[in-house]
Design a protein around this nucleic acid. Sequence first.
DNA 1: CGTGGCCTTGAGCGCACTCAACTGATGTGG
DNA 2: CCACATCAGTTGAGTGCGCTCAAGGCCACG
Lengths: 242, 242
Amino acid sequence: MPKPSPLTLKLSAFVALSDADLATLAGLDRRRRQFRAGHEMLHEGQTNASAFILARGWSCAFKLQPNGDRQIVNVQIPGDFLGLHSILFRTSDHSVEAVTPIEASELLASDILEAFSRAPRLASAVLWAASRDEAMVVEHLVNIGRRTAEQRMAHFLLELGARLKLVGIGDSTGFDCPLTQYHLADALGLSAVHVNRVLRQLREADLVRFQHGRVVFGDFGRMAALAGFDMAYLDQDHPLLR
Amino acid sequence: MPKPSPLTLKLSAFVALSDADLATLAGLDRRRRQFRAGHEMLHEGQTNASAFILARGWSCAFKLQPNGDRQIVNVQIPGDFLGLHSILFRTSDHSVEAVTPIEASELLASDILEAFSRAPRLASAVLWAASRDEAMVVEHLVNIGRRTAEQRMAHFLLELGARLKLVGIGDSTGFDCPLTQYHLADALGLSAVHVNRVLRQLREADLVRFQHGRVVFGDFGRMAALAGFDMAYLDQDHPLLR
DNA sequence: CGTGGCCTTGAGCGCACTCAACTGATGTGG
DNA sequence: CCACATCAGTTGAGTGCGCTCAAGGCCACG
């Protein structure tokens, strides 16, 4: 039996999938494509773009401001949908950039519709994943709106760690992280300079250290308390539909 | 022919609905319920909650912080779904409060599933509405992460005005708005005191005035430029599916 | 006529910003 | 092989936006 894909792992935490469902899901994995790090896979305002399922590597969704500032909306890891919005709407409302070299399966609107009609359970699973994505954006909103820089950083790293663990990357001690401090700044609504200072504070408090592309957790509990982190919105104890 | 409901108006801007679709949609409007202003219709962490379609009045979705701060995630107006998340997940990830007296139709998970199987077009319309809601949250995120207080306020009022116009409330000169300055503060990640100052600045610049429960636009174009407002994410020129 | 909700304004403070300079690692062409 | 460029990270100095605290005004309502 082959190793389950990150997407399968994630959806299975939500819905118990039959062999037929799994086969249909695997059928979405034709049309593999590769992108180099830094490539802009989707442009804000682009029409008739396709969507992707991320198989390997990291990407991020962002919007640009007239003055050049950018806000990263979402950091995407293996198993995530990417640009689902742009096949439901006529134009894409955000851009997507490959953070690392990327391997992803291209997805057309027709693929989705066909898969849904063949495996309705899969439809609820995908709707569920979309709803979870929205919950993450909401949590991100609260993060930026109502928390200090230190809390934002702590919350961001905790959430990322939890998400990676769910798709079988990294463990409870930490994870490899290809994001630069500039990415963190754009994601958290901070300046890169301040990100640097905040990371130093967290390191000196022995909460977490982020150096040389690796995040290592120090005191998980104290950090979760600091950030007000509760991973209920990410995970279910057991599948809802059996 | 009866006046179309706000939800029908909104969905019709997206998808051309057949008479059968419209009938199914109308069938979701049984179980009318009423709530008084200030009532908390949904609690964060609540299990097995129902969802609602808002027919009359305003509500808002929010999350509370341990220290008592709250972040309003979404202001809901007639035609909006309310708590759709809580029937897809086991527990609700946010609370919802009635801002004004409210009239809404209660919605069970079974209602949705049944309606979808009877009118698949309706399913895509609802998925579409959900995707639009997410786009609004994303825009809200950008608002708080990367704009000044003055820009946030301008953007917020412009978006609200545009949304209300789409469901047939208010016009291009302005709209009645039951939100207090405290609501605005909680929505925009500002303090109530600062909201007051910002409203004064906007008023003195003849951009917009918000007094006595009414928002009156002064210079729409200059305001949109200030806020970086582009309503592409709210509206389609014409229905996508015919 | 008192009370409570909402709005308004002033004074002072602090978190996160900008500007600026420097380190160190990596890569590239003469 | 070294000169140079580039990019990520680090640290210091000074500034300003939006905060808190405090006081008071206005209006609706019992």
